[in-house]
Simulated scan of single mutants.
Amino acid sequence: MADVKEERSNEPTYNPFTQQELPACKPLLVPKLVVITFMFIGTLFIPLGAICLQASSEVVEYTQRYDDLCVQGTSNADRETNLQALNGAGTNCQVSFQVTEKMKAPVFIYYELHNFYQNHRRYVKSRSDEQIRGDATGAMSSCEPKVYTGGEAKLEVSPCGLIAWSFFNDTYSLAMNGQNLPFTDKGIAWSSDRKEKFGNQPTLNFNDIPEYRGGGSISGPLNENEHFIVWMRTSALPTFRKLYGKIEQDVEAGSTITVDIDNRYNTYKFDGKKKLVLSTASWLGGKNDFLGIAYLTVGSICFIFGLVFLGLLCKYPRELGDVTLLSWNKAQKE
């Protein structure tokens, strides 16, 4: 008897939730409800898709690839050899954008990388969040394989890890119609990153080794270097854009924007590409037709299915509960 009482004491308290007796809605999918549902989704999604496509079409965007223009060579292997021969000094080149539509401020400046897998598990894990927050006792073992400098000294690196080590270090300066075009890099990183994830500690032994394929110099407190903060937020896809700056004035149609590039980042080693992007934004964000096309596609399919089911319902009406038209019932009678 004691065992039975102990076993019963472990039972959950009786209530409608534990016994799954809460009121529940169980709609019956009758033909009329199915038609109404499909027609409602189609009527809602098709206008939404048109609105999204309209917002995307209002975005003015110009893109220019430059990695193949800034270093001489017939292949990426040749370009990598020529770039490494400069011992980190990089090359200077220039690209131009002919603006055919007015670009309303702010105009965003992005760099775009191709074939760079920031989502690789080992790459994503190679960082120390404690260290970049300013915790001197933070664990650095997660930064492998970039924890120490090369050579015999084996000095600790701050910030450590592969993400910091491969920091993008190309730089740009802009001119419009021959006049300097100022832009700002303030406010390009998430405010939560600046305030909570990065501390005000300076870098340590980071700029002393020029052997990395990418990786730029970092100076000053980390929470003030927004280029670095943007880079540390890794991307999910191998082709991605990262915000470099913002032009806070309108760019009129017919203008020519010239960009002087200090090309140092070695994308040639992994057959990558580098592009520079100038873009405005709408209330929906940057230029991207995918959302609008997806809404239109789903809405159109639902609307067509709704019309088909409506036609079948009109041609073969039956009362609720009438099963005389079901094939299995006909087969039984036969």
Rank of each mutant, 00 (worst) to 15 (best):
V251R: 00
D129C: 01
R8I: 11
G151Q: 10
A89I: 05
V157P: 00
Q179E: 15
G73V: 10
A294Q: 03
G254T: 01
D208S: 15
N92E: 14
F290E: 02
Q179H: 07
W190P: 00
K333M: 14
K330A: 05
N169K: 10
S235R: 15
N223Y: 05
R133L: 10
K274M: 04
E252N: 14
C52H: 09
G42C: 08
D67W: 04
G299A: 02
G73Y: 08
Q131K: 04
G311Q: 10
L155N: 14
Y268F: 12
N288M: 04
I163W: 00
E211R: 11
Y265D: 13
D250G: 02
F198D: 09
K246D: 01
V95E: 02
D67F: 02
T74K: 15
N205P: 05
C160Y: 01
N15V: 13
K195Y: 03
L320P: 00
Y148V: 11
N266Q: 07
T324W: 02
Y212V: 09
W283E: 06
P47M: 08
G199I: 03
T171Y: 02
S9L: 14
Y244E: 10
L312D: 11
S166Q: 05
L69C: 03
Q54N: 13
T13W: 11
V99E: 04
T324C: 08
W165A: 13
D260Y: 01
Q332F: 15
L312R: 15
G216T: 07
L326M: 12
A153C: 03
M39I: 11
T280W: 04
T149R: 11
E226V: 07
T13S: 13
Q201R: 15
G311K: 06
G161A: 01
R213F: 11
L222R: 10
G178Y: 05
F198C: 02
K275M: 04
E6C: 13
I209Y: 15
M232L: 09
N329R: 09
K104E: 11
D260P: 01
L326Q: 13
V30E: 15
T234L: 09
Q249I: 00
A55P: 00
K102A: 12
F167R: 00
G299K: 06
I51T: 11
G220I: 09
L155E: 14
F206K: 07
S158F: 14
S166E: 09
I188E: 01
I229P: 03
G88R: 06
F183G: 04
K154C: 03
L313K: 10
I46S: 02
Y172F: 15
K333N: 09
Q131Y: 05
E21S: 13
L174A: 05
